[in-house]
Amino acid sequence: MKLLKRTFRVLLLLFLLLNIIAAFHAWKFTHFYAPGSFRNRLPEQMSVLEKAQMLLLGVRISKSVVRHTPEVSYEIVHLTTSNGLQLEGWWMPIPSAKGTVILFHGYGGSKDGPIPEAEYFRTLGYNALLVDFRAHGNSEGNVCTVGYKEAEDVMLAYNFVQQKGEKHVMLWGVSMGAAAILRAVPTYHLHPDKVILECSFATLTDAVKGRMRAVGLPGTPFSQLLTFWGGIENGFWGFNYNPADYAQSITMPALVCWGVHDTRVTRQETISIYKHLGTKKKELVIFEDCGHQSFCRREGKKWKQHVREFLIAR
């Protein structure tokens, strides 16, 4: 009996300790520090000691900084979230545009990341709008929910373009940006003409597992705890945040892109999103030389060909 009690106490202690560690991780993963406070490093770039320290205490992440601007003229625009945060965007219209493409960056990025993609859309005859998600770049805030609340940012950008009189809106997003689009369309009843989704995770738990893989750690059960605490700390149920499920509401044409060397998002996740899409007009493009990165920059010729054909298809 005493042995059972001791075993129970040890297990309980370990369970509590694991939850405390997970809560710290979740908080630091979703709360950014002031720009320049820390040197952001990819987990793949860390030493064994740094990874061990990150395992126990989590990693402090500085808010992203916008370092580049478009080479073409643009207008700085501001959008206001329901909790009063000011988001910053770059509006880049062209004469007699065929429509508008709104571009959304990934976790820890900023609106200067997809500048090459925006420039290509403009050469095809489309206006472009680049937006910093909340807590990224020049937008206000320090809390990131990996696409859950950022779905509102997608809606605000969409409404801005519609208020410009635009009737043909396309949405492009990478990683967290793609996940935010998938949630925004059904949540806010958006009706874009087409969507382009690159490197989206299938569930929040999958996103956490991807981060664990990056540091060479097993994803389960720690990823489940991070999903739980990440949602609780930010006011939502993390296990219900599943971009693959939202994909069922995507009834417009969709282009899905994924890189073979992606260590953050698996082929299985990508296939899940693709299969769940509620449209018959869909295409999956696999990039053999890419990882979790810009396909436009890495395999530009192939990316541009598929994007061009996708946009002109009826």
Rank of each mutant, 00 (worst) to 15 (best):
V65A: 12
D245A: 15
K2C: 08
K5L: 14
P218Y: 07
G173V: 07
G58Y: 04
T80G: 07
K304A: 12
E198D: 09
P93Y: 02
A202F: 07
E283G: 05
A180P: 07
Y158L: 05
E150Q: 13
G177I: 07
V256D: 10
G89L: 06
K167W: 06
T100P: 00
T279H: 11
K281A: 14
M155E: 15
S110A: 14
D245W: 14
F32R: 07
A97V: 04
L11C: 11
D245G: 11
T123V: 09
S64K: 03
E140H: 09
H306I: 05
A313V: 04
N40E: 00
I312E: 15
V161I: 06
C144G: 13
M155C: 14
G84W: 07
I232N: 10
A313S: 15
W303I: 02
W303K: 01
L3E: 15
A178G: 01
F8R: 09
V307F: 05
V169Q: 07
Q162Y: 11
G291L: 01
I271P: 01
W90I: 05
T266C: 09
P243S: 10
F222I: 13
F222C: 09
R267A: 15
T100E: 03
N19K: 06
L12E: 00
A184C: 05
D262K: 00
A118C: 01
S96K: 13
C296N: 11
I61T: 12
G230A: 07
P93G: 00
H306A: 07
V77M: 06
V265M: 05
E50A: 07
L13R: 10
W90Q: 10
L12I: 03
A157M: 08
H292I: 02
Y188V: 09
R41S: 11
D262R: 00
Q224E: 03
I115R: 08
M155G: 09
L197K: 04
H189Q: 14
N19V: 00
P253Q: 04
G106H: 01
K111R: 13
K98W: 04
G108V: 04
Y126G: 01
L182C: 04
G84I: 06
Q53W: 15
T7K: 13
K280V: 14
M176H: 02
V260D: 06
W237Y: 15
L55H: 08
L190T: 08
E44P: 05
T7C: 13
T220A: 14
W90E: 13
G36F: 02
A180R: 09
M155F: 15
P35L: 00
K98G: 03
P221C: 04
P70C: 06
L87H: 04
M54D: 10
C199G: 10
K275E: 15
F32V: 11
L3Y: 12
Y274I: 03
Q162N: 13
A22K: 08
P93W: 04
I232F: 14
Q45K: 15
M176A: 03
I102Y: 00
A135K: 12
Y246T: 12
K98C: 03
V59N: 09
S47H: 04
G259H: 08
Y241T: 13
G137Y: 10
V101C: 05
V174E: 14
A214V: 03
V101E: 02
Y74G: 09
H292T: 01
L85C: 07
K275V: 14
F287D: 02
R183Q: 13
W258I: 02
N142A: 15
R41F: 03
I20P: 00
F8C: 04
S175P: 06
Q224Y: 15
